[in-house]
Design a protein around this nucleic acid. Structure first.
Lengths: 141, 141
DNA sequence: GTCCGTGCAAAGGATTTGCATAATC
DNA sequence: GATTATGCAAATCCTTTGCACGGAC
């Protein structure tokens, strides 16, 4: 339960934290910016500040509850961390995001790190392309 | 020659552009921020503006002369684009950067894109770890 | 009641833009 | 000489911080 996750992370159970955590679990598109979280909650009538959203998301990241990505380079997006790691494939035209996991690549990364004497801690793999769907500009014929 | 690269990109041959292009080719550590380029040139006595550095690097990126990366998330770094693509492995402790290429991963990426109906355009793969070298905090016993 | 958390406004850092001047072709 | 570049300063965008008040335990 959300509440237990907060306690486990040593964070007091407050309204903003609960609202943000719940919201992250209800999204259609699991990748959101701090601004989007803020706007969504404001629209829902919450009296929350943008600074709090940033603070909470940062705390969640440190607690391992969420992951932070820099798909676009200028604005961070957050997503609820799931048990098994995954990477991303996204459409340059419509922004659609697909998550995937690939054992072959994961193993190869370990080999590369070992080859250079590194102890691998984490990695970021993002593929960019055109999804070619009917609802995307890249799919128009 | 540097000059020809500029002309080929449809950019006039100006002092700032030549200085930046030359500098990028002479670096020990090929990954630099706009600020570093700016400081290095100022220290060398050039009368250049930071805004120009940003403008030129952006133009170079669009011309395919340089690549822009977001290793740290908050500050972009640039490097001269080489013929064959490569990915990066970097040390979380000392910032050391190693470049590598891996056919297995490249092929696997194509398969993934195909599997989801995407036309792959580009990708970013960065591995983070500890290099364990004697000159790095991660290497101290 | 103590301590941590929050909202708001101000500060910060990286990058971009407006504009008059200066350089390239 | 016309057009494109440049330097400087101001502006913008995203994110963080300072501070007094409010809420959790």
């Amino acid at each position: 339960m959300d509440e237990d996750q907060l306690k486990a992370a040593g964070l007091k159970v407050t309204t903003p934290r609960m609202r943000i955590l719940t919201l992250l679990g209800e999204l259609d598109q699991p990748h959101v910016s701090a601004e989007q979280v803020y706007q969504t909650l404001r629209d829902a009538g919450e009296d929350i500040g943008l600074a709090t959203v940033y603070r909470v998301l940062t705390q969640f990241e440190q607690a391992g509850i969420v992951e932070k990505h820099f798909f676009s380079g200028n604005q961070a997006v957050f997503e609820l961390a799931d048990n098994d790691h995954h990477d991303h494939l996204l459409c340059l035209e419509c922004g659609k995001v697909v998550e995937f996991t690939n054992e072959v690549i994961e193993n190869e990364q370990e080999k590369i790190a070992k080859k250079f004497g590194f102890e691998l801690k984490e990695h970021t793999l993002t593929l960019y392309g055109h999804c070619k769907q009917k609802d995307c500009p890249s799919g128009q014929k």
